[in-house]
């Protein structure tokens, strides 16, 4: 029972990170109907930005500021940076293709992904930078409930992802920009006629989605204790998967999908073999997609003939 509980906690932590990445995919798909393949690499850049922020503040071994502040700065810089990157990508790789064929933005996204990955490779070199989390966040800061332990890093990640998700939901439902975004996702032409500044809202959407990915990047950097230029590929794929299971275009769907994916993966790793965990996850996904391509909370597309 406790093993299960432990797996669940790990799963939820992992799921929180996936959920944040998934949100970026879903938000962009909602407004532009494109699959932003470059999203995973934005996540990677976020991890790097966090890393450099950390080194700038003295690094894990000799921080010049209190640890909490350092973490805060890391997240802020990463999120701001990736947010801006998101806006730049939208402006130069997607905006010119607004009226183009369906496949053009996908290919462009592919190109951006390659550029980001190799640009990072060029600038940062292939070595893995170590976050060396354990040396400055003492694991004793975690707590235990019965036999279940959750170390401080995991706890922090879990809490932060929850906070971010709550903030995002408020943004989507409460603010004017958020509502405008939902309007555009529902019917872009009508939104334009209602006087919504579509360009501005899309920019915000990209900013928010990318910033969330950046946060996820820093989180995963802390959890996995390292960053590398290729680290965006698999989490990007998984975040994307999560968005799809939850129903691409649906914000609560992305969150649900992310958490679900994290838990499934954790359980598969814990109970079935670690070797086949990824395979099994993907097979489950495929089966799921075949029976419910719209995902759990997605809306089926009605096409007028």
């Amino acid at each position: 029972m406790d093993y299960l509980g432990q797996q669940l906690i790990n799963g939820l932590t992992l799921g929180g990170v996936y959920a944040l990445i998934a949100l970026g995919y879903t938000l962009v798909y909602g407004v532009l109907q494109i699959l932003n393949f470059a999203h995973g690499d934005v996540y990677m850049i976020g991890a790097f930005l966090g890393f450099f922020a950390m080194t700038w503040l003295g690094g894990p071994l000799a921080p010049t500021v209190p640890v909490a502040l350092m973490l805060l700065v890391m997240f802020l810089i990463a999120m701001m940076g990736t947010g801006l990157l998101g806006i730049v990508i939208e402006r130069f790789a997607y905006r010119p293709l607004r009226n183009s064929t369906r496949i053009a933005p996908l290919i462009s996204a592919l190109g951006v992904s390659i550029l980001l990955q190799n640009g990072a490779l060029l600038i940062f070199s292939p070595s893995i930078r170590s976050y060396d989390t354990s040396s400055y966040i003492p694991s004793t800061l975690g707590f235990s409930v019965g036999e279940l332990t959750i170390d401080s890093v995991r706890l922090g990640v879990l809490v932060l992802s929850a906070v971010l998700m709550i903030l995002l939901t408020k943004w989507v439902n409460g603010t004017q920009v958020g509502r405008a975004m939902r309007a555009i996702a529902y019917d872009k032409d009508a939104a334009v006629m209602m006087g919504i500044d579509v360009d501005r809202v899309i920019r915000w959407t990209f900013f928010v989605g990318a910033a969330l990915a950046g946060a996820a990047g820093v989180m995963n950097g802390l959890l996995l204790r390292g960053v590398s230029s290729g680290m965006g590929l698999i989490p990007g794929l998984k975040g994307f998967t999560a968005a799809v299971i939850g129903g691409i275009g649906s914000v609560p769907g992305a969150m649900l999908g992310g958490l679900l994916l994290g838990v499934i993966e954790s359980l598969a790793q814990g109970y079935l073999s670690t070797n086949f965990a990824d395979t099994i996850t993907f097979i489950l996904l495929i089966t799921f997609m075949l029976f419910r391509p719209n995902g759990i909370l997605g809306r089926p597309m009605m096409v007028k003939v």
Partner: peptide, 17 residues
């Protein structure tokens, strides 16, 4: 090589899809 491919894909889509 990869950078060129990546740049080429983006530029191609914009200029001559």
């Amino acid at each position: 090589r990869q950078l060129i491919i990546g740049a080429m894909l983006v530029v191609l889509m914009i200029l001559r899809p």
